[in-house]
Design a protein around this nucleic acid. Structure first.
Length: 568
RNA sequence: UGCCGGAUAGCUCAAUUGGCAGAGCGCCUGACUCUGGAUCAGGAGGUUCUAGGUUCAAGCCCUAGUCCGGCAGCCA
């Protein structure tokens, strides 16, 4: 149980923002005795990264104040909603770590109560049945700068309204024939107060209610009621509902029922992506991505598939914080959170994505051995593993330059480097094909440097990753980049759509190799391929055909050094 | 020619009641290192949108502007 005092005295965490501030004041002033929030998605799409902000704010605040959090499906429009999305959303919210206890709620469960309350409003003379068509209603609503006009049906008697409303519910009228409207003020500067629609007729099957109803409540009518019924204290929603708040309050006041407080916050916006259901569908239908869970999409299913962990997403929304300013966050902030999380958690493994063969000339032909490799230098408990070593190896083509540029410290003719956890090797020869392409390196190794240390104390300037060619497992690596090349996909020339900003290189498929220790890795497992980045086993992966998504790159300081060293 | 909201470092955000404008990321420099990663240390970076006003004192309060965003579904 939440006592009055415990709620007030609870340390609201390190986060301090205008919402928490307002809640603290409400508790201090005795407006509410506890804190109860909710996340109310409509089950008409998969959740995206933007929703994680709403979840974090609602759940995080409930947590901070020792309060309760509900997961509620705002399923008031049967034409858009499906069970598939209910299931998907539940999975996503749980994955993020929000805990709604036994309070999994559905707005549609309150339809009876809402209907009764609507009749109360009719009896009070505060609602009426209107016969205007969509077009007529739109025309008489007025504009942003001019008042609307009263509906000719505005002064129907209570009896007539009640009768008509009951017949609406009974299914006597076709879709769109009539609506129930609140009677407020057609001259209000706030358009949402100009006799808003409370019920519309929709002869449609609801994913939970079946055909029980043919009238459905509108968002404005339903939402405050849902909050009130559930005992929500603070209804935290995004900024576009700010202008709806007077209406939210009006319904609760006219009904005289328990009155939660609505507070708004700005939506999360990210560069290099889009965040609307309509566009998700366009991207999928147009074949620009493979589905809602394509790892390039900003949906949570996609990010999960890509290897992002909930810890990283929570950290991201925490960093973004809560303010009233509407803003766009750089995508790299998210990536930085992902890197920070994975650096801590991901086991290291060696993989070569652009293989160059190396033959160790002084290593016996028929021998192989194993060397010990540390699984995660950030985590002493992660232990170590055996990695096979033999005469023929693969290294990254990029780790060799025949004519090394300034500040390039890796392999070059005559130069010695360390094979990570292996031996020091020196390049003694370069084999080329007829076109002059390097096809193979001839090297020697120093047996005394086994494990990577030289007994004579000599240093090498670089350590590179490698694979024993005979033991390496072939993999497909999907190198992912921003879906849109422009920071703002809507930044396009006249007549063009955001689709012209699609990044043609957002997916590059590469054939590479990985060490045998990951042979049985399950989809979802994330590794750091040493020096290459973080990679996650994709769901398309099979035991003999491993597929990895590149979750994120490492911070690439070499790219900066190379750029500086290159003239021009 | 409406209503509502916003504007502080490159970006995202802080700044008790009006009381020395700070942090994270990014950037630069250095240290260290068996990932050119990570980590650590240091540094640069501000006319707090503009113009007035109140005050001992203004990012904060007042006035007038400027710019940006949202709003005219029987969507949520």
């Amino acid at each position: 149980m939440i006592s009055e005092n415990s709620a007030v005295e609870t340390d609201a965490g390190s986060a301090n923002d205008y919402i928490r501030e307002a809640i603290r004041k409400d508790l201090r002033d005795g407006h509410y005795r506890n804190v109860h929030t909710r996340f109310p998605p409509e089950p008409n799409a998969y959740l995206h990264i933007g929703h994680s902000k709403a979840i974090w704010i609602n759940y995080g605040i409930a947590q901070d104040f020792g309060g309760l959090f509900n997961l509620r499906f705002d399923d008031t429009n049967p034409e858009r909603e499906e069970q598939e999305f209910v299931d998907g959303i539940i999975e996503d919210v749980r994955w993020l770590g929000a805990d709604w206890g036994d309070r999994l709620c559905f707005a549609s469960d309150y339809f009876d109560q809402m209907y009764d309350w609507a009749k109360d409003l009719i009896r009070k003379g505060k609602a009426f049945v209107c016969d205007l068509s969509v077009e007529e209603l739109s025309r008489t609503r007025g504009t942003l700068t001019s008042p609307g006009e009263n509906s000719p049906f505005r002064n129907r008697s209570v009896e007539e309204n009640l009768d008509l409303f009951e017949r609406m519910r009974a299914g006597e009228f076709p879709d769109g024939a009539r609506t129930l409207r609140a009677k407020i003020d057609m001259a209000s500067p706030n358009l949402y107060l100009r006799d808003p629609v409370m019920y519309r007729i929709r002869h449609a099957e609801h994913h939970r209610q079946g055909n029980k109803w043919c009238i459905y409540p509108s968002y404005d009518w339903a939402h405050g009621l849902e909050d009130s019924i559930e005992g929500v204290t603070h209804s935290l929603c995004s900024l576009e509902y700010e202008i709806h708040r007077p209406l939210y309050n009006w319904f609760l006041e006219e009904l005289g029922i328990y009155h939660p407080r609505q507070i708004e916050f700005p939506r999360l916006k990210l560069t290099h992506t889009v965040m609307s259901k309509r566009r998700f569908i366009e991207l999928v239908k147009g074949g620009y991505v493979t589905g809602f869970d394509d790892p390039r999409m900003p949906t949570l299913v996609a990010m999960r598939r890509r290897g992002y962990r909930p810890e990283a997403i929570i950290e991201f929304v925490r960093r973004v914080g809560v303010t009233k300013a509407d803003s766009v966050i750089e995508f790299h902030v998210l990536e930085d959170c992902v890197r920070e999380d994975l650096n801590r958690a991901a086991p290291r493994v060696m993989a070569v994505l652009d293989a160059l063969k190396v033959v160790i000339e002084n290593y016996p032909e028929n021998r192989d051995e194993t060397v010990q490799a540390v699984n995660n230098p950030e985590d002493p408990l992660a232990g170590s593993r055996d990695v096979p070593f033999s005469r023929e190896l693969y290294i990254e083509r990029e780790d060799f330059q025949e004519n090394p540029q300034p500040k390039f410290f890796r392999l070059a003719p005559g130069r010695e480097v360390r094979l990570r956890y292996g031996y020091f090797i020196t390049c003694v020869g370069v084999v080329k094909d007829d076109d002059g392409n390097v096809t193979e390196l001839r090297c020697t190794y120093d047996p005394a440097t086994r494990g990577g240390d030289s007994p004579d104390g000599r240093k090498v300037k670089a350590t590179i990753h490698w694979l024993s060619a005979a033991h390496a497992l072939p993999i497909e690596a999907r190198i992912l980049d921003h879906l849109f090349k422009a920071s703002n996909p809507d930044d396009v020339a006249e007549g063009e759509s955001y689709l012209s900003n699609l990044n043609p290189d957002s997916l590059r498929v590469v054939r590479g190799f990985v060490e045998p220790s990951v042979a049985n890795a399950q989809p979802g497992s994330v590794y750091q391929f040493e020096r290459l980045g973080y990679f996650c086993v994709d769901k398309d992966s099979a035991p003999n055909a491993l597929v990895f998504n590149r979750t994120a790159t490492l911070r690439d300081t070499w790219a900066k050094i190379a750029a500086k060293a290159t003239p021009g």
